[in-house]
Design a protein around this nucleic acid. Structure first.
Length: 410
DNA sequence: TAGTCCCGCCACCCG
DNA sequence: CGGGTGGCGGGACTA
């Protein structure tokens, strides 16, 4: 549709804008901040307004992030302005689903049941609920935004061309297609955004389309990088490429304890040799279907994807009852006001695995100044699946940092 | 200078 | 018509 935009340059956008001014105007957050905010116990429902307010960014930015997160199974849309948090437990199944679909697309097999609903046949709501739980799906019927057959003629063909066009260019679908590229390429371990754009755009694309697509891929890649699903590598001096990490980017020891990576080595220690991850399947990239054909096949809702694990993923074993913890001497009101890209104080579990950094940056305020002397935060962190226990130097008082951070960011 | 990505306009859709 | 959503591309910034 390529609407024509005539945007006047804002004064603060002019070439003479100072760097300081840009810092003030800057209105984005790293996606990891979003995840850091919500990836913990007790988070089940996410409001976009709430996210926008708590992260201090404009709503528009939230849309981009949640669309990508939804595409990889971390979020599920429940209703307008509301998402349910699935967490990283939802990623493996979402990836499996994507992989399976990519395989079927490649082999020309009949689509999965959910795929039989092409984007053209699917209402927005079905699409929205593709990652949702059964509860949300039932709710979806009430929230239906169907655009099918808006006319009064029962036999009239559905009129949805524009929405289809919009949908097929959606960031969510682009994310899934981008991920599928990783899941189906074999002979190369990395892919540049230019390459990805060419695959996703197909032949005969204009330069402007390419630029736009690459812009969007940057957006997506940044989110996926923050999730540690991919990592940026430098193929040559200028052209970066991205390598698939998959769930390998989320190290877990066999006993289920999250491995702590130090800030200095985390970018390396979290790596996994490409080609060994479960999600990397062997398909020659050259065998990828023509993009036009692929688009049609990819335009599916996948309403069955996460139904089964959605709820289960939110309640993982090994969790400690939150009520079993008591607050330490910290005052929960120590606000999380730091640099926009500093999310450590919001608490992270699976994205950064950077607990040491978290400990370093954690600066609690003490209700009683004497406590600061008596309680040295050695921050031994006993990490269960979703809990961090902060043990004081005496070793006899445990505080739930997760609980604490929940309060801080509330 | 190419790569990166912030930023917000505005089209689209629905109630 | 208003509000939610999000595609899109200009252009500032960075390496």
């Amino acid at each position: 549709m390529a609407h024509v935009k005539k945007k006047e340059s804002k004064p603060w956008q002019s070439a003479g804008r100072e760097a300081v001014a840009r810092l003030v105007v800057r209105n984005t957050i790293p996606p990891r901040c979003f995840v850091a905010l919500y990836d913990r116990d007790g988070v089940e429902s996410i409001g976009l307004d709430d996210a926008s307010r708590r992260l201090g960014v404009e709503r528009r930015r939230i849309y981009d992030i949640v669309n990508v997160l939804e595409s990889v199974g971390i979020l599920a849309r429940k209703a307008k302005n509301r998402y349910s948090w699935i967490g990283f437990g939802g990623v493996p199944m979402a990836l499996r689903e994507l992989k399976e679909r990519a395989l079927r697309e490649k082999s020309g097999l009949a689509p999965l049941p959910a795929e039989e609903l092409s984007a053209a046949n699917m209402s927005d709501d079905e699409d929205d609920d593709k990652l949702g739980d059964p509860e949300a799906e039932r709710e979806g019927e009430k929230l239906s935004q169907t655009v099918d057959n808006p006319s009064d003629m029962p036999d009239a063909p559905p009129c949805r061309l524009r929405s289809d066009h919009r949908k097929e260019k959606s960031l969510g679908l682009l994310t899934q297609n981008f991920v599928k590229l990783f899941l189906t390429m074999e002979q190369v371990s990395t892919i540049s955004l230019d390459e990805a754009a060419k695959f996703l755009l197909g032949e005969g694309h204009e330069e402007s389309n390419m630029r736009t697509k690459v812009r969007r891929l940057y957006d997506i890649a940044n989110v996926l990088s923050s999730l540690k699903l991919i990592e940026k590598t430098q193929v040559d001096t200028r052209k970066p490429a991205f390598r698939w990490l998959g769930m390998a980017g989320k190290p877990k020891a066999e006993n289920g304890v999250t491995i702590v990576a130090s800030p200095a080595r985390k970018t390396l220690s979290n790596k996994r040799v490409f080609g060994t991850e479960l999600t990397n399947i062997g398909i020659n990239r050259s065998q990828l279907e023509p993009t036009t054909q692929k688009k049609a096949k990819l335009a599916q809702g996948g309403a069955d994807i996460l139904k089964s694990y959605n709820v289960a993923a939110q309640k993982q074993p090994g969790q400690v009852n939150k009520s079993g913890f008591v607050y330490g001497p910290f005052h929960p009101s120590c606000a999380r006001k730091q640099e926009p890209d500093d999310c450590n104080n919001v608490g992270q579990r699976a994205i950064a695995h950077d607990w040491e950094s978290l400990a370093d940056s954690f600066r609690p305020q003490y209700q009683n100044p004497d406590d600061e002397k008596s309680i040295t935060l050695s921050l031994q962190m006993l990490i269960s699946d979703r809990k961090i226990l902060v043990v004081d130097c005496a070793g006899n008082r445990n505080y739930s940092m997760t609980t604490y951070l929940a309060e801080v960011t509330a």
